[in-house]
Design a protein around this nucleic acid. Sequence first.
DNA 1: TGTACATCAGTGAACGCGCGTTCACTGATGTAC
DNA 2: TGTACATCAGTGAACGCGCGTTCACTGATGTAC
Lengths: 211, 211
Amino acid sequence: MTSETRPYHHGDLRSALVQAGVQLARSGGAQALGLRELTRQVGVTPNAAYRHFADHRALLLAVALEAQEHLAEEMRKQMNTIRDDADPADRALHRLRAVGTGYIHFALAEPGWFELAILNPPERGDEAAPPPSIDDRVPVPFQLLLDALDEMVTAGLLTAAQRENAEWACWSTVHGLADLATRGPLRHQDPKVIDRLAGHVVDTVIQGLRG
Amino acid sequence: MTSETRPYHHGDLRSALVQAGVQLARSGGAQALGLRELTRQVGVTPNAAYRHFADHRALLLAVALEAQEHLAEEMRKQMNTIRDDADPADRALHRLRAVGTGYIHFALAEPGWFELAILNPPERGDEAAPPPSIDDRVPVPFQLLLDALDEMVTAGLLTAAQRENAEWACWSTVHGLADLATRGPLRHQDPKVIDRLAGHVVDTVIQGLRG
DNA sequence: TGTACATCAGTGAACGCGCGTTCACTGATGTAC
DNA sequence: TGTACATCAGTGAACGCGCGTTCACTGATGTAC
């Protein structure tokens, strides 16, 4: 069928909505993802969305998962810039650094996606009898951090004691700078300056972990 | 005049609006501060607000300044829990720690105010010919951090080189944890747990600064 | 192979809402003479 | 000491907007026999 014919049935409206959301979010952030705007974008009636999503928030979260995947991708990209046969310690350090700088770099390069990626899942207290652990999966970007820290331990750069709670120190630092650089007082700084700062704060926190 | 008589002229509508904003923000955050809701709260017509504020955002920012002052107050309170005649190094360290833990503690104790306190000032690029440095004052909470870091240098705990960009490492870490604990994945954690984490991440970043 | 029919994925119109802002106005205040 | 008048701080009504959601519906699909 040609692109002119608009069939009554869309075919894959669900993923079309999500993809439209990903595009809109890229330039406009979460706020650009009105249910009406998304359906408009796809060329479909607003209520059609309700065939595929319980409500507006569910649609938003589906888009957020995509954004999270983009974030993880950038982090992985930076993590993989070291050869596999490098010295384990160098490798561990490089990868931990990359987790942090990748996170910040992504926030700068794609602020709209970043905003979405850190979007909250629905409140737990809302439903009666919350499903115990369903969909309690650890977000991929966070898992990359956990893995990198474990690798630091394996490589002998971090003791078990130092490893404890290290993820929160790391995530706090890196997320904090990302927030300052996108929503906060650094939001109009030259990206080059931010990237330099990113390297500095990441090194600082890693230094701090090692005592 | 009794509280029953509603005089035509309010008397001090401007500050009444701001105070109502402070109260509303405490439980509802920035989102609770609709212009209509605020004027409703004060018992005045929506447009009356325009006698005192250019627009909704200006009113919001006035409330944000108050919230920022509350934040600074909490930080100062924690900073002053050490005697003035204590050993200078102990004192400097204590005060730097307090800057961080005070910030995080405030975010936990008053999430609505915290959200407002970190609200962005208006965009710079928006006005033609931006006023060069008018109202470019450093926010008080940030100034407290700068002072604490300088005190670390004076006390000999930080070299001039280590002092460089230290404010961004500190602010990133502390703000990051505050954000994770209010909007992020830690937002339903027991405050006790967060306070413990706060101590840990603050110590980690300070450790990191000192090399 | 063809037809009946349940099922599914959309449509079209409307509801009810609250928002920030603007316009033309009126009631109150205070100052000059 | 009293009065005219400019000024200021509010009112009342309306504009125009876009939102998420619901209702009753119809067009298309595919499966059973």
